[in-house]
Amino acid sequence: MPPAPVRELVRELTRCADPQRLRRDVEFLADRPRSRIRAPEAILRAEAHVTAELAAAGWRTSRQPFDLRWRLGSTDRGGHRAPPLAFRLHPRLTGANLLAEPPGGIPRPTVVVGAHLDTVEGSPGADDNASGVAALLEVARLLGGLPRPPAVTLLVSDMEELGLIGSRFAARWLRRHRSVMGMICLESVGYFTTAPGSQRMPAGFDRGFPRVAGAVRSAGLRGDFTLVVHRRSTRAAATLWGAAAEATEPALPCITLGDPRPEGPWGALAGLAVPPLAHLDRSDHAAFWNLGIPALMLTDTANFRNPHYHRPSDTPDTLDHRRLAAVAVATAATAATWPHLY
């Protein structure tokens, strides 16, 4: 049960959240693939939409371009399978992130809420990751409407599908120029199903995470929950997010998963050695972990649940926008309350 102030905040934010507004954002973003390399006009169009929506919510957005050479990453080819250790060396990558600051000035210290804008080749990416961007925009509206906007920075990252390229650049910049308390990553957060057997788990997951595997199995392998991946440094924030999600309307089931690795490069190396752990690195939060910054990942587990993952069929009509609104509410409440946890 969340503390009374958090329950009150969740109720207030739930009254303001609008599933139809999230649907409109997803439909606009996911009407075509978005890629700096493969669909540059589409990603510029998506950038313009995000910037306009953030401005309407009172946030000040800056575009931060980057030009990087010889970066180790991955491929953005489509396909349902997503091997966690598929590397590619990129000779040159030119892209841009969007950073937004709240009404009232630059927050110090700050909690970063992030989602990636790009898609893989050939997929409109409604779940991966228009759902995350739409939830981020709703977080901006919800927090911007509070009497005193909290210390939050919004990050819309580029080239996640090429190996967290944009978030790696952003995490380094933020570490130099901001005091970052933590990061919340919205990664494929809109696909839910109550069908028994719809939720799958990676090979070796039962041995590595028996509590989580048991909880999923005891619920009939139904893909109706949000997974919150955390490390020791963000256990309290993960617990708070889960409590906030359960207080939303409708209540959103949540399962927390504690990654045993430490922050920093040793944690990343452990993921290379133990493939089930590498699945926990498959989004922008890992760029923050690798710099020692506490982070959470929120996800519907992507290809372990969603049959449309990285395919042309990842379209807006497959998402549950009411539950997506609940994700936004729980995220906004957690980001607003984070400074009081530590």
Rank of each mutant, 00 (worst) to 15 (best):
residue 191 Y to C: 07
residue 113 V to W: 00
residue 162 L to K: 10
residue 228 V to R: 00
residue 116 H to D: 06
residue 208 G to W: 15
residue 286 A to P: 00
residue 67 D to N: 14
residue 135 A to E: 02
residue 315 T to L: 12
residue 102 P to Q: 05
residue 7 R to P: 03
residue 259 D to G: 03
residue 91 P to Q: 11
residue 304 F to V: 04
residue 82 A to N: 15
residue 222 R to V: 09
residue 17 A to R: 03
residue 299 T to Q: 04
residue 143 L to G: 02
residue 45 R to G: 06
residue 105 G to E: 07
residue 215 A to R: 12
residue 165 I to Q: 03
residue 42 A to E: 15
residue 265 P to W: 12
residue 262 P to Q: 05
residue 214 G to E: 09
residue 25 D to S: 13
residue 286 A to I: 03
residue 161 E to R: 10
residue 142 L to Q: 01
residue 313 S to A: 14
residue 244 A to W: 00
residue 128 D to Q: 04
residue 305 R to P: 06
residue 42 A to G: 09
residue 158 D to Y: 06
residue 60 R to W: 04
residue 342 Y to S: 13
residue 240 L to I: 03
residue 232 R to C: 07
residue 78 G to S: 07
residue 213 A to E: 04
residue 233 S to W: 07
residue 81 R to Q: 11
residue 262 P to S: 09
residue 97 N to E: 07
residue 189 V to K: 02
residue 95 G to H: 02
residue 204 G to A: 09
residue 232 R to G: 09
residue 186 L to D: 01
residue 53 E to K: 11
residue 317 D to W: 14
residue 117 L to K: 09
residue 291 L to E: 13
residue 70 W to D: 11
residue 276 P to V: 14
residue 221 L to F: 13
residue 139 V to R: 00
residue 277 L to V: 09
residue 228 V to E: 04
residue 215 A to K: 14
residue 150 P to A: 06
residue 254 C to D: 06
residue 94 T to I: 08
residue 89 L to Y: 02
residue 278 A to N: 11
residue 216 V to W: 01
residue 112 V to C: 10
residue 199 Q to D: 11
residue 145 G to W: 00
residue 52 A to K: 10
residue 236 A to Y: 10
residue 214 G to T: 07
residue 55 A to N: 06
residue 303 N to C: 12
residue 220 G to N: 12
residue 342 Y to V: 10
residue 159 M to P: 01
residue 242 G to C: 13
residue 252 L to F: 01
residue 314 D to S: 11
residue 103 P to R: 06
residue 55 A to E: 09
residue 112 V to A: 11
residue 11 R to D: 13
residue 3 P to F: 10
residue 127 D to I: 00
residue 19 P to V: 01
residue 292 G to F: 04
residue 72 L to K: 08
residue 13 L to F: 10
residue 331 T to P: 00
residue 168 R to Q: 14
residue 202 P to T: 14
residue 258 G to W: 02
residue 255 I to H: 11
residue 106 I to L: 12
residue 261 R to D: 07
residue 253 P to N: 13
residue 114 G to T: 08
residue 328 A to Q: 02
residue 333 A to C: 08
residue 14 T to Y: 03
residue 77 R to H: 15
residue 232 R to S: 08
residue 85 L to I: 08
residue 71 R to I: 12
residue 65 P to Q: 11
residue 272 L to A: 12
